[in-house]
């Protein structure tokens, strides 16, 4: 599954585009776990102390917010789906 990382998250991972191996029928949560397994350093930046995704980090599945529009981490992925993870930036 294909992840796109932005700004600080791309820097931490050292990559803007990341492929992770997940089985057929995998969910957003599976792809997310696989991402953190590949880049453990990301965990501190995206998960709060309770292990929930930070409020300020946006996860998108095919440009949609799976938490408000789909089944959250349970959303089933299809072949070729793109996932994105990005923080807000503030510079001006």
């Amino acid at each position: 599954m294909h992840w796109r990382l932005f700004a600080t998250l791309a820097e931490t991972a050292g990559d803007t585009e990341v492929e992770v191996d997940v089985d057929a029928g995998a969910t957003v949560g599976d792809a997310f776990d696989a991402l953190l397994e590949t880049y453990p350093a990301l965990e501190d930046e995206v998960l709060d102390e309770d292990g929930d995704l930070y409020e300020h980090v946006r996860l998108l599945h095919e440009g949609r917010d799976p938490f408000s529009e789909e089944d959250g981490f349970e959303t089933v992925l299809e072949d070729g789906d793109e996932l994105a993870l990005f923080p807000p930036v503030s510079g001006g």
Binding site: A7, T8, E45, Y54, E55, H56, R58, P87, P88, V89, S90, G91, G92
Partner: peptide, 15 residues
């Protein structure tokens, strides 16, 4: 709607 809260200070540094 996109970012309900700001990141903790220093998490996304400035220019």
């Amino acid at each position: 709607c996109l970012f309900p809260e700001a990141p903790p200070e220093g998490a996304v540094p400035d220019c």
